[in-house]
Amino acid sequence: MEASATTVSGGRSLIERSPLSRLPDQVLQWTLTALAAAILILIAYFFIRLIGQSSTAISHFGWGFVFGNDWNPSHLIFRGLPLLVGTVVTSAIALLIGVPVAIGTALFLIEICPRRFRTPMAILVDLLAAVPSVVYGLWGVFVLAPKLLPVEKWFASTFSFIPWIGGGTVTLYNYFIAGLILAIMILPIVSAIAREVISTVPSEHKEAALALGATRWEMIRMAVLPYSRSGITGGAMLGLGRAIGETIAVVLVIGNADVIGKHLFNQGYSLAAVIANEFGEAANTTLYKSALFEAGLVLFILTLIVNIIARWFVSRGTRTRAAGAVMAGVAVDEV
């Protein structure tokens, strides 16, 4: 036999593809692709089912569900402005308090903190993200709210001339406490993204500023902040998304009152809180339950929009795949 390297005795070429040789590869590729596609289908399916469950309330109240101011379950009236206001107010407080602190922390850790303290300090800040929301609620109910009540009372009476602050009773649970807890809860994610973004500022930019005789702070202002603005904005938006959707910590400390609070230190409600708080009562009333599903739908759409904007900023600001991991709440240095 004139045995050539590339043919076997049967004459079939050794490099010829046998019918089954590529099967495992194709099976695997299709399985993985199908799994990935299943995620999209699942999300779409959930979304449609949620709309379906909300449809009773949607047809009953229309836009009034979002903008009407009358949440009255005993009369089966569900106009949820008090919920939306609560969500907006508490999230705004969370941003106002949480974002500056988070950015300050990130700047300090990356630009000022001695290198050997950086990682341990960052780990400590990240630990805030590890605390479950129900534990924040626990702490808020039994420690933060009672301890801050006298301070809030003093503040409300001293600054009562400022609108939305004074001029009414200060309740134990209120918008401010809820917003404060949210601020603490969003701090680690905003800070993690800010750190990620700030640490990617090219050192030439920074050195150029320093070479011009800038002080550290001037360098931060001239080189670091402008470069990382987009990413930090994205981080703040992500924090906003988290704040809007947070349920358990808020339901415990917002007071769950179904009228709009008169001021910052008054009790209120939120979209997420109402679902957790009233789901049990709604069990057998179709319209009531549908209204709670619609609250969930509004929440879903709201967070979706915020997250889409956030993602746009983050991916513009970091230009790295790491953005995704950061968004998933996994700081890159952990991986």
């Binding site: 809007i244 959707g245 969930g296 929440l299 967070t303 997250n307 968004m327």
Partner: peptide, 9 residues
């Protein structure tokens, strides 16, 4: 986007 969907949803 899924990472931002509230857990209650």
């Amino acid at each position: 986007v899924m990472t931002g969907v509230p857990s209650i949803v």
